[in-house]
Amino acid sequence: MAEIIRTDKLVKNYYRNQDKKDPSAKIEVLKGLDITIEDGEYVAIMGSSGGGKTTLLKILGMMEPLTEGKLYFKGQDSSLLWKDELADIRRREIGFVFQDFYLMDSLSAGENIMVPMILDKAQAEEMKQKMHGLARRFGVEKLIGKSPGELSGGEKQRIAICRALINDPGIIMADEPTGNLDAKSSRRLMDTFDDINKEMGKNIILVTHDPKIARCSDKIFFIDDGVIVRILEKKEGDTSEFYREILREMEKMEEE
C-alpha cells in the first residue's frame, strides 16, 4: 500500500508565555515520533490525557507547525510547502471532524456543509447537489435549513462529517468525535466512520481515549508523554482479542 503520511523524528514543543529563550518554559509535547499511515488505513491514536494526541493530529492535519523533524504528506516534505499549499491540502485532501463540532453559528446546517466547497470556488449547483447527497446519506436532509443552535450534538456531528466529506478528501481526521455524544449517537457515528473507510475507501485518523471506539480501527498508536509506547495492529477477524489488547494497554498506561 502507498504511504500517505509519514513522520520522521517529529518533535513539538510549546513554550509557556511564548518565551522561547527560557529553557524552563519549554514543554515537550511530542518527542521524536516516527509514524507511517498507509493508504486506506483506519488509524486510531490513543493515550493518556495530555499525552499529545490532539497535538499530533493537528500536526498531521497541517494545522500546527512542528518544531523539529519531518512530516511527509504523500511523499512531499511539508516544511517545503507554502502556507497556501498547506491550506489547499487541508481543503481538498483532508476532512476534519472535531469534538466540539466547530460549526459556524451564522450559517445554516446546509451552508456549513458547503463551506469547504465555497472556499474551493465550486459552482453553486454542484455544491447543492453534493450537499443534498451527503445529507441524505447521513440522514440529516431535514436539518439542512436549521441553524447549528437548533441541532442536537449527534446531529451537529453528522453535519460536521458531511462537511468533512464534501470535497471528497482522501483522509478524515477526527478529534474525539464522540466526546460530546451519547452512547447511541456514538455507536451510529462509529458505524458511519466504518462505512466511510470501507465503502468510500478513505483513510480515517481518529483521536480517542474510548477503547470501544478505537476497536473499529485497523491500527492504534498508543502515545504517552509524547512518545509512542506501542503500535497495535488488528489481525484479520480477531476483533475481540484486539479489544482485549487495547484494554490491557490502557490499564498498563494508567498504572504507569
Binding site: W82, D84, E85, S106, L107, I118, K121, A122, A124
Partner: peptide, 21 residues
C-alpha cells in the same frame, strides 16, 4: 504551485455577509 483559477461564487459573499449580520 499556487495556481487557483476561477472566482469565488456568490455563496462565498453570502457567507461573509451572513457572518457579518
Amino acid at each position: 504551485r499556487l495556481y487557483f483559477p476561477g472566482r469565488y461564487g456568490s455563496s462565498y459573499y453570502k457567507m461573509i455577509l451572513k457572518n457579518v449580520r
